[in-house]
Computed example of a mutant assay.
Amino acid sequence: MIELKHVSKTYQQKKNMVEAVKAVDLTIQKGEIFGVVGYSGAGKSTLIRMVNFLEAPTQGEVWINGQNLNQLSKKELLLTRRKIGMIFQGYNLLSTATVYENIAKPLQLEGISAEVIEKRVNTYLALVGLSDRKDNYPAQLSGGQKQRVAIARALAHEPEILLSDEATSALDPETTEAILELLLKINKDLGITIFLITHEIDVVQRICDRVAVMEEGRVIEEGPVIQVFTQPQNPTTKRFIGANEHYDVPEEVLDGYKSTGRLLHLQFIGEEATEPVLAQVAKRYDLLPNILSGNIRYLKDQRHGQLLVQLTGGTEAEFAEAKAYIASQGIIIEEVHA
């Protein structure tokens, strides 16, 4: 569906050359939700703007559905872009146009008939839940409603791909959740491939199938969300997702527990998150589990549980056997050292 082949983007700023994106290779499959995360300045926005050639890469190629965008004429590129919708953090709505007109005007510029425009506008306003707001102006809408209009406008072109550039960054948590639910519905019901960038880690774990982490213009880690979030390899990825933050337990408290027992960070995926593994550890070995902290969340549709556990008593051999038993139950286990 989307292939970025060794794409790079360099800008000239006064006397300096700035490398915004450096030799990125990514493949996004048809029908998936793919997220790119990273700190500010990582190159995310430049990367997503190269997907529809709002920014032409300095080097490398962008392929959409088997077409090399680098080789298209201006007319061919314009036609291809119509199958790539885009939503922005700032909504980009015309303040003097109604909701209906904001969605209809781009279609009018394409030469689409009034009958088709009316049908599409009404269809996608209904999809985003704003049928009763079509005669309102943007100033009469909340931030979440404005973003829904922007999504309807993008969908009205009936694209195969939807690009999202920090679309929830300006929204409160409750509205963000509603927009994410809408994106999931669009992906599921319409089969649209979604490529999004964000600095909000919750967005990725809530809706994405796969994720890439960027730093200083490069992709430093990539894979299924469940893999990257539970077993991050790069130090930046670990910092970004908070892998080393043991549930906000103060370091001095952790030090106290380390002095009286062994600390384990356990991660349960799927059905393992409901199994009484620690009860079995206490039963099988001369060890006493003490749960210090924990949580259960969902990485898209997979349950992910975490526990910070202290094991006291027993010998080193029993501790090693207990760790081996826990790992044999499909649980990711990591010893927490001082």
Rank of each mutant, 00 (worst) to 15 (best):
D25M: 02
P224K: 12
T193V: 04
D165W: 12
K83V: 01
T123R: 15
V116F: 03
F268A: 01
L308C: 05
R239G: 02
A114E: 14
Q13D: 12
V203Y: 07
D209Y: 11
K30Y: 10
I296S: 09
T96W: 07
L196G: 06
A273N: 02
T236M: 13
K119F: 13
G144C: 09
A56D: 08
Q145S: 11
T123V: 09
K105G: 01
G242T: 01
K146G: 06
L54C: 01
N234L: 12
N244K: 13
E200Y: 12
D255Y: 07
N65S: 07
E115S: 12
N68P: 01
E318W: 01
L109R: 04
L311D: 00
Q329T: 06
W63I: 14
V203E: 05
Q89F: 09
D286Q: 14
T168M: 11
P57D: 10
L196H: 13
A327G: 04
A167F: 10
L4S: 07
L307N: 00
T260M: 09
Y39S: 15
I112V: 14
K14T: 12
G242V: 02
Q233L: 15
A150N: 10
S73M: 04
E166A: 08
I291V: 11
G85D: 02
E200V: 06
Q147A: 10
E115A: 10
N102F: 00
I28H: 09
A139W: 12
L266W: 01
A156L: 03
D165T: 14
S293F: 14
R284G: 05
I326S: 03
N68T: 07
V37A: 15
N70K: 01
T10D: 11
V99A: 08
E216H: 12
G38H: 10
L299W: 08
T58F: 07
A273S: 13
R239F: 09
L163Q: 11
T176K: 09
L307T: 00
Y247I: 01
G143C: 05
S73D: 03
G270P: 08
D165H: 15
E55D: 02
G35E: 00
T98F: 11
S73L: 01
L93D: 05
N70A: 12
E335K: 07
G129Y: 08
L182A: 07
F240I: 03
G330L: 02
I201S: 11
I194A: 09
V37L: 15
K300R: 13
G111K: 02
T27M: 06
E215N: 15
Q227R: 10
E221F: 11
N187I: 08
T312M: 09
W63Q: 02
L183T: 02
L78A: 09
L263P: 07
L288H: 11
A56V: 11
T315P: 00
G144P: 09
I296Q: 10
L26I: 15
G270Y: 04
E321W: 02
E55R: 14
R297N: 08
V37N: 06
A104T: 12
T230I: 00
T230H: 09
Q12V: 10
A23R: 11
H157N: 15
I332E: 13
T237F: 14
V277N: 03
I103W: 12
L254G: 00
A150L: 07
L141F: 04
G85L: 03
I161N: 10
H199L: 03
L196M: 14
T80W: 00
E216I: 06
V24I: 15
I194M: 05
